[in-house]
Amino acid sequence: MTLTQQRKLKTLLVGLASWTVALLLFFPIFWMFITSFKTELQAISVPPQLFFEPTFENFSIVQERSDYLKHAWNSVVTSFGATLLALIIAIPAAYSMAFFPGKKTKDILLWMLSTKMLPAVGVLVPIYILSRDYGLLDSKLGLVIIFTLMNLPIIVWMLFSYFKDLPKEILEAARMDGATPWDEMVRVVLPLSVGGIASTGLLSIVLCWNEAFWSLNLTASEAAPLTAMIASYSSPEGLFWAKLSAASTLACAPIVIFGWFCQKQLVQGLTFGAVK
């Protein structure tokens, strides 16, 4: 065998192995997707059916049974609301730490990271009681507040690492022309970092959308986002796999597709800028 042939064979084998692993790991998602188009009887047939006549009735049943649209709307409102609020709070902080660093800046950043180390369950009781006393139990506003605070450290870190990479010369030029820090931020920094802010926002939306601990513990029927709605399918009622799959597909599809587009930013954000 010549060297090129050997190399070709190796590429083929690597490709084959990679595809096998990828298909295996993706299989549960694929299976959920196609089960959502089956009838309940097809869904539990042994051996499993790969080819069948698709039906769309599960989706309408899910809408009827658990009011999918209401919970989807709750997810949209809480994810986008919390993201917007967190960005508004975090942008000034990240800006001031990136462009006017003091001796304590690094300490403050590390301290923010450490607030993420605090396990949520350690403060479950007080947050539950505070929410109850202020009428925020089972309300979208309550979740927005929690999600905002939960993601604030990650958002500050991500924005900080974007701002830090902006060319300093532009700011100095603006300063020469007599711009105040506020002008600099609004007129110079923000327009230059639209991309960075957008991907930070995407990451935050993904994290809020999939958040389950607080959603399960602080909401009931009214404000429950999709994560909590799906949990109501955990107690089986007769044949329900096709409906479960339909509900799950509806709940996950938007965010999985969202995720494909922002993988890179996700890594950067979740590793606090340590891996780029």
Partner: peptide, 10 residues
């Protein structure tokens, strides 16, 4: 990468 975006309850 996809399984990472599936919500824990699903």
């Amino acid at each position: 990468i996809s399984p990472f975006f599936i919500m824990p309850t699903v």
